[in-house]
Design a protein around this nucleic acid. Structure first.
Lengths: 224, 224
DNA sequence: TGATTTCTGCGTATAAATTACGCATAAAAT
DNA sequence: ATTTTATGCGTAATTTATACGCAGAAATCA
């Protein structure tokens, strides 16, 4: 190996290139539990195994655009609130060739996004996060770290994605938090804490069909 | 454009590739202030401008290995405690070609790492973080976000890298925290807080030359 | 329908963590 | 020897978090 190959780190026309992919851990909140969207591979390698939806970053795409593209093209899901988690660069992650992957988490309400199986996948399914099948590649690690990141973010900001309807009760919000954090919270303390952050406001309406007729709230001019 | 080009997101032998680089915001703690290590470009583009040390990920290298390699080859600094921050994938970040960059922050004690100017750089220098020159590419954004991440991490863990000697006084630790966080802390409360975390222990020696002869401490079987 | 259950909204009591600051003492500086 | 400066240990005040009581509203049930 020439000395220049050892020490030259500059970006030149002929600099080494490799394939960069994105993987997105799409979390859905359904029937009060947190679920993860997985796709089943149609082709080798790992044919028939489950994994996170993902794919290559194409020419002219940013990683974020690639995530949108991949989700639509594999699952039919569009308009997903997503956030970058981490980059994985081990050299032997992929059996076909060297691949560097940028991971994301996404948040959706499954009812709003009917799954549309596209030609690149064998199957798509929501799995409860406590009942995940074995995953291909290093996708167990990736989904673990994505969930960790999601939990951290939930604790410091108000993150809903589109997981709740525009009008929601405080209890609905609390159940979402409990599902995301996998924890139980005191009803009255949660109310106080969330209200003093001034991120949601009472819209003066009440929700029928629930004992006590709880007040409805909405987001307070903030993006989730 | 063929349909397959739109929808195919699979990793194949001929999948699109691009150059991936790493950039590292190396922070140094010197004379009580936080500094950032910058290199001055020797060649176009941006010849003569300052920027973060960085370079391409080469065949067979992980991003972490590339950081080590880049730092040694540009600045002579080795054995840097570093951590991944974020991935930048905008398509026009680099004038020569499309480049995706993974950023890191590093922590060093400048006295321990004499700067050795290598052939790829015109100059290397430590800059006070409140007196940075204009930076090339999007390196202002990258260094800002790296510093943000460092501050966040400092608040939740005990992070020293190698910024303090093995034996240090609590005041020395406090000054480091103040430099990292750009804040002033109460001496007595800082002592209480840091001691109750049980991460450092009093080794029973005293430091001479300082009024009051403060106790010396050391890390308590933890990695920084 | 009337009693019962369940959930809401508002409150307070207690505990824990954070912040503010006093003071005697040890060593360096004058 | 006196002054100055920093340390080490303490306590008081404040803020934040946690535990839990209770009346009332609406659905449910006998």
């Amino acid at each position: 190996m020439k000395d220049s190959e050892i020490t030259n780190v500059a970006v030149t026309e002929d600099a080494y290139e490799c394939t960069v992919t994105v993987d997105c851990a799409v979390f859905g909140y359904q029937e009060g539990v947190l679920k993860l969207l997985l796709v089943q591979k149609l082709t080798d390698p790992f044919k028939g195994q489950w994994l996170l939806p993902g794919g290559i970053i194409k020419k002219g795409q940013t990683a974020e655009e690639a995530v949108d593209n991949v989700l639509v093209n594999l699952t039919g899901i569009d308009n997903v609130h997503h956030r970058q988690v981490k980059c994985y660069s081990d050299v032997n992650r992929h059996p076909v060739k060297r691949v560097i992957t940028i991971s994301f988490y996404g948040l959706v309400k499954p009812e709003n996004h009917p799954l549309i199986k596209k030609k690149n996948v064998n199957n798509i399914e929501w799995f409860r996060i406590d009942q995940l099948p074995p995953l291909a590649f290093d996708h167990e690690l990736i989904s673990d770290e994505a969930l960790q990141k999601l939990k951290m973010n939930v604790e410091e900001r108000l993150i809903l994605g589109e997981l709740l309807p525009k009008k929601f009760t405080i209890t609905e919000l609390q159940k979402l938090y409990e599902a995301l954090l996998d924890d139980r919270l005191d009803r009255r303390n949660f109310r106080k804490k969330i209200l003093q952050k001034k991120l949601i406001k009472n819209i003066g309406e009440k929700k029928k069909g629930i004992k006590g007729a709880p007040d409805l709230f909405t987001l307070n001019d903030h993006k989730a």
